[in-house]
Design a protein around this nucleic acid. Sequence first.
DNA 1: TATTAGCACTCTGATATTGAGAGTGCTAAA
DNA 2: TTTAGCACTCTCAATATCAGAGTGCTAATA
Lengths: 343, 343
Amino acid sequence: MIDERDKKILCAVVQSYINSPDPVGSRFITKKYAFSLSPATIRNIMSDLEEMGFLSQPHTSAGRVPTDKGYRFYVDFLCSEEYQADNRTFVYELTRELESIKNDIDILLSETTRRLSNFSHYLGVALSPKAGIATFNRIKLMKYRGNQVVTILLTDEGLVKNKIVDVDFELSQRDLNRISSYLNSEFYGSTLEDIRLRIIREMAEEKILCDTLISRAIRICREALSFQYGDIFISGFSEVLGLPDFSDIERIKEISKAIEDKHLIIKLLDKLSKSEGIQIIIGSENSAVEMKKFSVVASTYKEGNKPIGSVGIIGPTRMDYSKTIAMVDIAARFLTGIVSGNR
Amino acid sequence: MIDERDKKILCAVVQSYINSPDPVGSRFITKKYAFSLSPATIRNIMSDLEEMGFLSQPHTSAGRVPTDKGYRFYVDFLCSEEYQADNRTFVYELTRELESIKNDIDILLSETTRRLSNFSHYLGVALSPKAGIATFNRIKLMKYRGNQVVTILLTDEGLVKNKIVDVDFELSQRDLNRISSYLNSEFYGSTLEDIRLRIIREMAEEKILCDTLISRAIRICREALSFQYGDIFISGFSEVLGLPDFSDIERIKEISKAIEDKHLIIKLLDKLSKSEGIQIIIGSENSAVEMKKFSVVASTYKEGNKPIGSVGIIGPTRMDYSKTIAMVDIAARFLTGIVSGNR
DNA sequence: TATTAGCACTCTGATATTGAGAGTGCTAAA
DNA sequence: TTTAGCACTCTCAATATCAGAGTGCTAATA
């Protein structure tokens, strides 16, 4: 088993590797940390830790490097401790500079991720509020250029979605008003996802659609709901290029491929958002192959008590977890505050 | 002066360098192109071309590489010729797959740039319609959660912009309707830029604002107009990573820095959109330092006869100009068709 | 029994050396 | 004006060398 002393040494190794990306040797540990042990002893312990899978050697006669399991141990250990990094400037920037854009969630998120990446030097990511669980507030239809209708959909959470819909039948603004008041009374208080499902169901049971007004209402509403459900914001690519972890071209291609496929990251964040609090995934713990060399720290922001979106940081497994966790936590709380304060 | 034969050899050099990124030597030219001249003669000519600034040598005893001036000559020559690459699949993809999203200009542009980058292996870029020159069609105001107002602004061009505005005074929906009908009659047919200027002017002359209704109308309208004016779409970063031109890390940092600063590219495209037709900027011809190692091929798409946005390709100076020009042209015509057909 | 000093061994990474290959410029001949 | 011939230059890849850092093992020590 791993005893107290081993733990401390493991953490020391992880920490100094995080600090600078050179494999750490036994002598270095004795010098940097006051364990009052000789290098030889440290070597023995490190050898044990390697056997247990926490450390590995890039080659014989190099120092040790943490494995993903090693990082995992370190992070779990961290979380059981009090940590406090100095994030005052970060908090300050978020609150001072972004408070004013609270009404535009997209800009808010993109600015937040930008600051996350600026301060962390990793990728900042955020998932916009999930439209599916948003609550229908009202829909407004406006006649527009020829046979087009502009639909405007409001939710209780502050989402405003508009869509231009082509209709193949003649409709007056009065018809549209009737249609929208039908939809408003019919759907008020439902979630968009429920509405979507209900529409699909009702369209299947074609008989109901005999009533032209209702039929048209449903068709327009379906279009109005057909926007992209989860939008993702990623920023900081040029930040990660500066990291020593991305000094060779293959790694760069890897991460750019991972970013490219936004769908992948949306899915990932979405999965993480199912759980409460800060979620951490380290390297190979990722289910997607593309992400197996990166770590993800993510949390959710809420409207009231309902988690509506995610925010996080993606970086190399050799990541300053302590700082990263703190920053993601701050960002999540900040967003929650803004979004919830908007009612 | 440069005679006909020199021209042909220059073009041959540029072409084979574009074809593969090795400095091209005299022997190679004699073999690949049927000039019925010996390598020695070619050498003399190439030496002349170097003196004239069209070619350069990476080092003594390497082949020649085109300078930016060389590319420029080649491109100008190209443009005077008939060229026709096979872009049928590209055209097909654009028309078949994107016709259906004609009502959502943002998605349309992002999908178009994606395809541009897929087919060209360079960066695809597009500038969304300039809101400034768009024509005010109508504004709609809706009361929303407490003291908020949702503004929806429509333009003749199919732009729909919404904004949540905090108001610090009590307003009924009836008040809002009055305000919007005031704004609608006041601004109908003006461009958004004119409206913006007028609002600034009127707010400066405070006396006019004695009338509370008008004063509030103006304030709300100002907010409604305060969205981001030019949005840019860039895609294909992982495409360029595959190019031999970006096989070293410094080049990658350069281009990622250039992309990072979207503002820069917006300005660039905006400037290019002042002229008619396909615009080509090669390397050092760029005014911005960050872009001096890249080439830009851009055109505008129009609504009717009015250019409203830009589309283009950014890549290394060693670019397949012929193909690129054709693709940008196709994309611009395609977008023009969609946008203009929407009325 | 746990720790440590000593030492041989291993692997990396920087530096220097070499030689083939490709291409040039120049000169003199056609 | 064009071309053959040739000496010269530069790159790039392969190879050798060597200091430095770190390990593992053994035997001595507390």
